[in-house]
Design a binder for these strands. Structure first.
Length: 581
RNA sequence: GCGCCCGUAGCUCAGUCGGAUAGAGCAUCGGAUUCCUAAUCCGGGGGCCACAGGUUCGAAUCCUGUCGGGCGCACCA
């Protein structure tokens, strides 16, 4: 962890100090509410390096008008040696320009921070459990899982960079009815592997070819033991066996995307440990669960609906539309009942919980939020809990929609995807859109038009930097920070862009939006490409200027630090910073 | 019928706890390469920020309603 304070944070403190001084002077009332004061770079760089809205936000409290208050703030700020100009603009913005050495120092901070530059202590070591993927263990991962997997993984990494202690967790749904279907399908393939003609895969079974291997492996492992046994003999064994094989497949798929979870939590194990029973008992004790009858669903006709008494969780007390059953009429746990206990379990070891879900689960967000709210209320400490919904990815191939259906056994897998376009393209592309908006992913397009793909643009910037360093070494130039005063306006502009990185990490972490890092990197890469091209018009603006070794050394130092920031950003996204394209 | 998400340039999308003249890429038009990687750069044209109200010094951003698209709506996972 770098203990360096970012330039923006440093100035936020300086302005805070000015406001304190104004309180002492009586210009501002004591204990003025400063929560809306911001210090940020202005949108338009022509306005300066930093802008604060302090005067506008505080004018009312000071019983003054924004411009008059601004003048008093400016008077204090001008005493600071790092401030070369402080101007009042528009409705009362204060625009500051900083002395070049402030920016050049930041370059040194990047060098000193290295791979840690951009990390923040913001999270203060809070333990965040982030659950993502959690695909049912009934087959390989397909594109439907991809976006949530990438977004979850990048978010985990982002929060880590922002000073949280992150647990990456996968909930294995190995207790439901579809796992029985999996087991039966696997048993069928097992008999097939032993030479039986099983004909067409019956309706309601998983037809996918990936089960052939499972059948073969089972045949090798069990021999003919379970061929003629009654189902109740082999079902539990095949369930566990098939789930384990499927999880092997899923873990391999995740590895292709560079994803590795810390914890795989089994629903079956949760139930075996009677966690749902414990949760129910606790809930009944607190009058959060009662036996009641559900209303008939509206707007959708259900043929065989009949009123049944079930144990219901009072989720309406916490904003849900309806109370929700935690057990089915046969006494088994509903998915929700087990999930409730699961969240209770996660909350024991975390200060905050995050779930990443597909948009098709949107309907169940309210009930699980209600459950966590109920739990944390009972425990006396509210657990911050966020469900992030990742919208559907429409997969296209040359403009034509590709159907994804697990049932038919015909779907585009993660493995296919990564093989065709590569991990970096998949990851970066999934992060170039905010996750709550739907997106199209045209298979053909990202491959063919690869040069238009933003990931290459960013990687190219990094590769260019590596290339220039190789070139420089051939000519015996090395980067050096000895005389950075050589750097001029063009370089400062680039440094300013790079210096945003720590802010971006914090802002993205606060908003829990890893895609911001992807957009930031694109902008930084653009700034570097623009800088590079200055040398095309004017040879003296190239990074390597043979006649000027000091200037060259300083520019190389700059290039190294830009490369460092790109690398650090790509690391958050889990994308490779290549040295050559 | 109800709930959640989305609606910004021809297309795909950004847009900082509300801030200054709303930005990129693609497409289109015009330029830059004897030169560190042109997978790059520079410039032009292109916008009732879906619509209508409200909140305020100030709204693409917050609130309400309408329209349009997606997803989901008994003891399925």
């Amino acid at each position: 962890m770098s203990d360096h304070q970012t330039l923006y944070a440093a100035f936020a403190e300086k302005i805070d100090a000015v406001l304190s001084a104004l309180e002492m002077e009586g210009t501002l009332p004591p204990e003025t509410d400063r929560s809306n004061v911001s210090v940020e770079p202005p949108r338009d760089p022509a306005h300066g390096d930093l802008a604060t809205n302090a005067a506008m936000v505080l004018a009312k409290q000071a019983k003054s008008n924004p411009r008059a208050l601004a003048e008093q703030i400016v008077e204090h700020l001008q005493r600071d040696a790092a401030v070369t100009s402080a101007e009042i603009a528009g409705p009362g913005f204060i625009n500051l320009r900083l002395a070049p050495h402030s920016w050049i120092d930041e370059l040194g901070a990047i060098a000193a921070g290295g791979d840690d530059y951009g990390k923040s202590a913001m999270g203060a070591g809070r333990r965040v459990n982030i659950e993502y993927v959690s695909a049912n263990p009934t087959g390989p991962m397909h594109m439907g899982h991809c976006r949530g997997a990438v977004v979850g993984d990048a978010l985990a990494s982002l929060l880590e960079h922002a000073g949280h202690e992150v647990t990456r967790e996968y909930y294995v749904n190995d207790a439901g009815g579809q796992v029985d279907t999996l087991a039966r399908s696997a048993h069928l393939r097992y008999r097939e592997a032993l030479g039986e003609d099983i004909g067409a895969i019956p309706e309601g079974m998983y037809p996918g070819d990936y089960l052939v291997k499972v059948g073969e492996a089972a045949a090798a492992e069990f021999g003919e033991r379970f061929v003629n046994e009654p189902e109740h003999e082999w079902l539990p064994i095949f369930r566990a066996y098939a789930v384990e094989r499927m999880m092997d497949v899923i873990k391999a798929d995740l590895a292709l995307l560079g994803i590795e979870h810390d914890v795989f939590a089994s629903e079956a194990a949760l139930q075996a440990a009677q966690k749902p029973e414990a949760a129910e008992a606790w809930m009944r004790e607190h009058d959060l669960v009662y036996d009641g009858v559900l209303e008939k669903p509206k707007g959708k006709t259900v043929d065989d609906w009949e009123p049944v008494e079930l144990p219901l969780f009072r989720s309406t007390k916490f904003g849900d539309d309806q109370d929700r059953p935690i057990r089915k009429s046969d006494g088994k746990w509903t998915y929700f009942g087990a999930d409730l206990a699961y969240h209770m379990q996660k909350a024991e070891k975390a200060d905050a919980l995050i779930d990443i879900w597909g948009a098709d689960h949107a309907g169940t967000v309210k009930r699980i939020k209600a459950a966590v709210a109920a739990l944390s209320q009972g425990e006396g400490k509210p657990i911050p809990f966020d469900v992030k919904l990742v919208q559907m990815v429409q997969l296209l191939r040359g403009g034509e929609p590709v159907k994804m259906s697990k049932r038919s056994g015909n779907f585009v897998t993660i493995a296919d995807m990564v093989e065709e376009v590569g991990k970096d393209v998949v990851r970066f592309t999934m992060l170039t859109r905010k996750p709550e908006a739907q997106m199209d992913f045209d298979f053909a397009k990202v491959v063919e038009a690869s040069k238009d793909n933003p990931v290459f643009y960013v990687q190219y910037a990094h590769a260019r930097i590596c290339s220039i360093l190789r070139k420089a070494a051939e000519q015996d130039f090395a980067p050096s920070a000895d005389d950075l005063s050589q750097l001029g306006e063009d370089e400062l502009a680039l440094i300013k862009q790079a210096a945003q990185f720590p802010r971006e990490v914090e802002a993205a972490a606060r908003a829990r939006e890893p895609h911001r890092i992807a957009f930031y990197l694109y902008d930084l890469a653009a700034a570097f490409h623009a800088y590079w091209n200055l040398g095309n018009d004017d040879a003296r603006k190239r990074i390597i200027v043979a006649q000027e070794p000091d200037l060259t050394a300083a520019r190389l130092f700059l290039a190294v630090q830009i490369g460092q920031v790109i690398r650090n950003g790509l690391a958050i996204l889990g994308v490779e910073a290549v040295e050559e394209l």
